[in-house]
Every structure is written in C-alpha cells, then in structure tokens.
Write a protein that binds this DNA or RNA. Sequence first.
RNA 1: CGGGGCGUGGUGUAACGGCUAACAUUCCUGAUUUGGGAUCAGGCGACUCCGGGUUCGAAUCCCGGCGCCCCGACCA
Length: 416
Amino acid sequence: MKQSVLFTKTRKEAPKDEVSLNAKLLIRGGFIHKRMAGVYEYLPLGLLVLNNIIGVIREEMNAIGGQEMKLSALQDKATWETTGRWDDEKIPVWFKTRLKEGAELGLGFTHEEPLTELMRGYVSSYKDLPVYPYQFQTKFRNEERAKSGIIRTREFIMKDLYSFSRSEAEHRAFYEQCAGAYRKIFKRLGIGEITYRTFASGGVFSTYSDEFQTLSQAGEDTIYIDEAKGIAVNKEVYTDDVLKDLGLEKKNLKEKRSVEVGNIFSLGTRFSDAFKLAFKDENGAQKSAVMGSYGIGPGRLMGVIVETLADEKGIVWPSEAAPFAFHLLNIGGGDEKVRAYTDTLYKKLLKVGIAVLYDDRDLRAGEKFADSDLIGIPKRIVVSGKTLEAKNIEVVERKTGKTKHVAEAELFHRGA
RNA sequence: CGGGGCGUGGUGUAACGGCUAACAUUCCUGAUUUGGGAUCAGGCGACUCCGGGUUCGAAUCCCGGCGCCCCGACCA
C-alpha cells in the first residue's frame, strides 16, 4: 500500500485523556480511533494487525480440532433464563434492549447458553463427541469502568471456543491441548517469554481455572510467579492452602503486575445439564456432555503487544502481527532517479506477494523515519541517493535498529 | 459504585471577571531545503461540552446536566 493514499496519518501528540501507552501509540500511529469511553474503532492499519492476530489464533484453534462458526450478538431472554443468567443482579454487565413490540433482548457478553442450546440439535450419540466449536465475535460488557486503552473495553472481539466432551478424562486431555495451543499463540505473537500460565479461581465446577497472564505495567492483575517452574498464581487464590496444594513455596514467588490475555475454564455439566445437552454412550446410557470454555481477546492482545514490546520511539510489532512485512522509504528528496527506482522496487515486491507499505510521500527523511518508527513495521527498506550510488538498499530492523546494506536481489532471495 | 482530576480550532496548550479568545502543531499557497518530525512568508479553521443563573460585562464565578481520565471496588 502506498502511504500517500492511506487516509490515516500519524500524530506527534496523543489526546490528553489517553494515559495508557497502548492507546497513545495506537492513536498516534493511526491504528485506532476512540468513539467513546471503552469503545474503540479499528482503522486500516489497526484492522490489518487485528486480523493478523485473529489469523494466528484461528490457525492454532483449527490445529486442535476447532470448528469455526459464528453465533449472534443479539440474545433472547428465554435462553438465558434457563441458567438464571438473565438476572441483572447476577450479571451486572448486560447491555439490554427491546424489540419494537416490547420483547427484551440482550447483547451477548459470552456465549455458553446459546451455544449449548444450539448444540442440543446436533449431539445425541457418543459418536457425535467430542466437538470444539469456536468463533470470533463481538462481545458487549457494560463495565462499570473501562480502562487501559483497548485492554478493557465495553465492546470487544473475543475468540471463544467451547469444548463438549464425553468424559472428564476426555475433557481434561483437550483442556491441556488447548493450553498448549495458547502457548504457541502467545509465542508467535512475541509475548511468549513474558506470559505465564496462572492458577486462578475456578468457578463452580473446578478448584482452579487457568489464566494466561502477560507481565505488564498496564496490568490489572497481580500474580505470583515461580520462574523456575514457569507457572504463576493469581492473587485471588494466593493462600497458604493453595500454595501447598500446588507445591509452590512462598520464597520462590515473585509478585508482578500482569494482564490476562487468555483463560480456560472447566464448566463441568452445568450448562449441558441446564439445557439437557445429553448423549447416549456405548451402552445406551444417557450422559451429559462435559464442557469447557476457552477465551482470548484479540483486541486486548493487540494492546498488550503494544504495551510490552514498544520502545521510546513507538510500536514494535512482532512479524506475525505486523500490518506489513516491510516499510519501504523513499529518501530521495525530489530526486527522480530515486523515485523511479523505489517505485519499481515497490512493484516488484508486490508482484512476489510481499506485504509492503511504501512511503512515497514528498517529505523529509526525518519525518519518514519518525513515522516509520512509530508505526513499527518489523523491517524498513531505505532507498536514497546514497544507496542508489552504492547499488544496494538499506534494510533496518525495527526492533534492534540493526542496519544492513544488501543488493536488491538478496532481498528477494531471502524473502519476507 | 465510592474518591479525585478535567472539558477552549482536528491535536496539544494559553488567556486577572474586561479590546477582535492567543500560541504551537495539523491543513492550504508559495519560497527554500532534502539521511532523523528543518526554515521563512501568507492563509483557512472555535457558538470556549450543554442548559440555566450572577454581572454593565463570563472561557473565567455559581447551580444542574452530559462527557472524559485516574485510584479503589467490581470483573467466566
């Protein structure tokens, strides 16, 4: 894409009411726009990143047998009354509305109920299980307080996968498999090293749930990590009994701030019982499906990536999340030869399918470098009178600033 | 939901109760410049969040509302 036609532009200053680093940088770079408190919109660059993150998650979910689908955001009252979760006392985050005729509707804040209800029509035999439907879908939560830029919002995309298994053992196996998939996702998105599988409160049907917590100043959670073991405990279950249960010792634990980037829950048969989602086993006995739910917020993940990987100059995208693989800069001033060469190079890159943002604008070098640093594309290709004369091009790694001069052919050789 | 802070061109700031609401940036014209947001000249752009009130006079003071941010509480 040519930067001259990109409708967003960078800004030197962030709006004063944005305090969080992720919102500051993402707004300055033209990735997102704030509509209102806790509601952000994705602009072209931001959507590219979001879709890349979604793509990584999708690959890993498909790899463990996930089947993508998409439920509705609009929810009907009756479905949720089945479990008692229509009640505002129990679920204070509901956004509710009405049809013209008066019937009450809600905007889904999660999807256990509608999915379990739906699956009833497709599951009747042990041969139908296990199944792992999932979706990327907009959730609405009327949070009392939105905060931290795109990390805690009222409208957000969530990947939610639900597992339906025949037995507790089968459930447990998938649960661990999904935990493994989550590890891969966070690793691919550059935050694997600072993301800990964390024991947290488990809800009704298990002692613990597992959260994936990424160390960050922007965090809302406090966790205690055991670096040697690579696991952590959320403050909410940080008691002597729990530590003993988990075989952890206080002296090995370090207190850290973190953001929850993923969670996995065992749901037991709470929902399958409520909706009578049952199947016949090999002996003809009626059994309830054992369920789990597995969430990741791609938007939040994007915020966490910015928060944790950015430097003083701007965003540093990991390559799998980056909006483009290369940022091509024409630093030729008005030099026609430089422009012609860069134009041609841009076309060649497009032709071989490399995602490249071409800064073809008539601006001074400094401004282009500053923009490029802010936007954070992993590799920068600089073409100028100097490089033209030396018959090479300059490739700069955003993360390290490492600069290489290579022949044009080498660029294509090594690929993106 | 408790506590605190704040609403002024797109963005960031200024203006004692008193002149045509100022400066920077963005944007437009032109000149000049071209490896780290350069420089110069000219120009566009604001019912000062909304509604009341006090006053000869309100961006400024008072009341109410709305909105935004932060801390805490809450958070499958």
